[in-house]
Amino acid sequence: MTVADQFRVKSDFVLKETDANRKVLGAAVTAQPDAKSVDKLQTFNLAEKIADLQNVFVASKGPKLLVILQGMDTSGKDGTVKGVFGQINPLGARTVAFKAPSQAEKDRDYLWRIHQEVPAKGEIVIFNRSHYEDVLISKVHGWIDDAECVRRYAHIRDFERMLAETGTIILKFFLHISKAEQKRRLEERLADPDKHWKFDMQDLAERKYWDAYQRAYETAICATDSETAPWYVIPSDSKTQRNLAIASIVLEKLESMKLKFPPANPDYAKIKVE
């Protein structure tokens, strides 16, 4: 069984029944005194392989890869970018962090700002939050009704299908943490002055809607999962296991593509550099 198979959303997916502390099956032995160090070493090695394959990915100038990271506050979107994609060449990759929309973005359809950031040929793009925010937060706060929510799910399915049909590989990761773990991480930020910059009072305000967000995520995931734009629910109470799972899935996808460098140019053999 691949790691992707372990965390791929199933047809009977229920978020509240999903363990936020589940481990990666088949990972290196974790009975050692410092299991986190083992996870980090494995992830580092996987990240190096991802970086190697990215060179071929860029050179081929064919496929496009879009990685979508969604999750509750403190679930580790920034940490995933650093831990999994920190070794890839930034010349062939971008991370896009979507914040609250600007007035110009509000004046257009909600997918307008998203479409501008999708990957070009040979490019890897990581979305830190994404178009799903325009269903999740809008639904939780009552800014859209159920009918509009259903319409937006349809928009998103069509949008992602169009991307897939025009050469974009899509991997969607929901970083699943427990409410207790979020509480611990927020308290950790408050207790450490060097982490105060990461604390936002809005995180506490949104935490009050925890149950509503869990329902919204479950509905969104079930409504938009597809073979060409699959959802993976990644247990994220453990930061190191989270990174290990995502790195494994990304590498599995890249390896499955059988990437190759473009054919050599025979004329180059005749060129002499003086």
Rank of each mutant, 00 (worst) to 15 (best):
L163Q: 13
R184W: 11
N265A: 15
K239G: 14
P263L: 05
D34A: 04
T168Y: 07
R161L: 08
R157D: 10
K121L: 08
E227G: 06
L244A: 10
D225G: 03
I50E: 12
T43R: 15
V38A: 05
A20E: 04
V135T: 05
E188I: 06
Q6F: 02
K99S: 15
Y232E: 04
D12A: 00
P119M: 09
P90N: 11
K64E: 12
K272Q: 05
V233R: 14
A100G: 14
E188A: 15
Q6T: 12
L66N: 05
K23P: 00
E187S: 12
V58E: 07
L66V: 00
V96I: 09
V135G: 08
C222Q: 07
K195E: 02
I221L: 15
Q6A: 02
T228D: 07
P101L: 05
F159G: 03
N89V: 00
R215W: 09
H155F: 10
R108V: 11
F98S: 09
P230T: 04
Q42M: 14
V56I: 09
K64C: 02
K49L: 06
S248G: 12
M72R: 05
I177V: 12
A147E: 07
L259C: 01
L163H: 06
P90I: 01
P90M: 10
V29Y: 14
T240I: 05
V150N: 15
N21P: 09
A28I: 02
N21I: 03
A205E: 07
D200T: 15
S178W: 01
N89Q: 13
W231N: 05
G76Q: 13
F173L: 02
Q70H: 07
A31N: 12
K36M: 10
Q32P: 05
Q116E: 14
S130G: 05
A269C: 10
A154C: 11
Q54Y: 10
N21V: 00
Q70C: 01
V9M: 09
P33A: 06
E160F: 00
I156W: 00
